[in-house]
């Protein structure tokens, strides 16, 4: 197991290398100039050129890449052009919001999605099942930003129950009340992804139900609840866990839109702003961090199979 983990960790290096080459070429194929953006609409070409030199943007691309890569592997992702401060601290400032949003959404997805999927499978082909599936299908067909804006009209504008935008930090103020700013965003983000988990849970449950050992367990006269939980769910959970890596990426992708809708000070919105500002180091930094997270989550998922299913072992 340890040896396997170590081998997997080694494969991360080429992945990150490929990723950073891709990211860097993307960035430098973008037209436009961060210096021009920073100086606003009234800057003269001379002022822009002066700032470009100051920011080191006039160096050849390969030089910039080599410098960046060297420092990235030492844990330094460079400085933001726009904020004039280290990328890591820029990301850190925005991380609280995104971590909260992603975690709460994930909790909603797991707490709602899995049980509903299980019930739907158990009640296969009943009206309840069909209704659930219908709703799940609908939820997966709604654009997240549209759902968010509608929730905002209903709960913030018309009913005035919840704030419509922004998020004052909880960690800094210690005020847990601020979490109410995240209720609508989390529902928005969780909805389509819960739908996918419901469908996945249901179909993997149904697959397992067809297996011989389930029939045997039932024939042995075991209680139905035990059959469902111990035999069916236990086995179905592996394919659910394997989907969590993708769900995570889907959530991160979703934060970009959700944070924009609700004007949350998070990393997702920072991505959009940074693309528009051509703040290359920040975009590079964020994608780099996301890829690392993704790789680690996939590793954790694979390792967790061994705990979930005794038949799987890594040597």
């Amino acid at each position: 197991m340890l040896a396997y983990t170590f081998r997997r960790l080694l494969t991360i290096i080429p992945t990150l290398l490929i990723a950073s080459i891709l990211i860097f070429s993307f960035m430098h194929l973008m037209p436009g100039d961060p210096a021009a953006v920073m100086l606003g609409t009234n800057a003269t070409p001379e002022q822009v050129e002066k700032l470009r030199v100051q920011l080191g943007l006039d160096r050849p691309i390969y030089v910039q890449f080599a410098t960046w890569l060297q420092e990235a592997f030492r844990g330094d992702l460079g400085d933001s052009i726009f904020f004039q401060s280290p990328v890591l601290s820029v990301i850190q400032n925005r991380a609280e919001t995104s971590i909260f949003v992603a975690t709460f959404s994930m909790l909603i997805i797991l707490i709602l999605g899995i049980p509903i999927g299980v019930i739907s499978a158990v009640k296969y082909n009943t009206l309840l099942d069909q209704l659930t599936m219908g709703f799940a299908m609908l939820a997966a067909s709604i654009p997240t930003f549209w759902l968010g804006l509608n929730l905002m009209i209903l709960f913030s504008v018309n009913l005035d129950w919840l704030p419509s935008s922004g998020f004052p930090s909880v960690l800094e103020s210690g005020n847990l009340n601020n979490l109410k700013y995240l209720i609508l965003p989390c529902i928005t983000l969780a909805a389509p992804n819960s739908a996918l988990i419901i469908r996945l849970t249901r179909s993997s449950m149904l697959d397992v139900m067809k297996e011989e050992y389930v029939k045997t367990a039932r024939a042995k006269g075991l209680k139905e609840s035990i059959v469902i939980l111990k035999h069916i769910f236990r086995n179905a959970i592996i394919s659910i866990v394997s989907a969590l890596g993708f769900t995570f990426i889907a959530l991160l992708s979703g934060t970009v839109v959700t944070e924009t809708v609700f004007s949350l000070p998070g990393v997702g919105r920072l991505v959009v702003q940074s693309v528009l500002r051509r703040d290359y180091p920040v975009i590079q930094g964020i994608i780099f961090v996301v890829v690392i997270l993704y790789v680690f989550i996939n590793l954790l998922t694979d390792l967790s199979y061994a705990f979930l299913d005794p038949r799987i072992s890594y040597e």
Partner: peptide
């Protein structure tokens, strides 16, 4: 275009 591109 986005502003960054227009400015260039």
């Amino acid at each position: 275009y986005d502003w960054a591109t227009v400015a260039t």
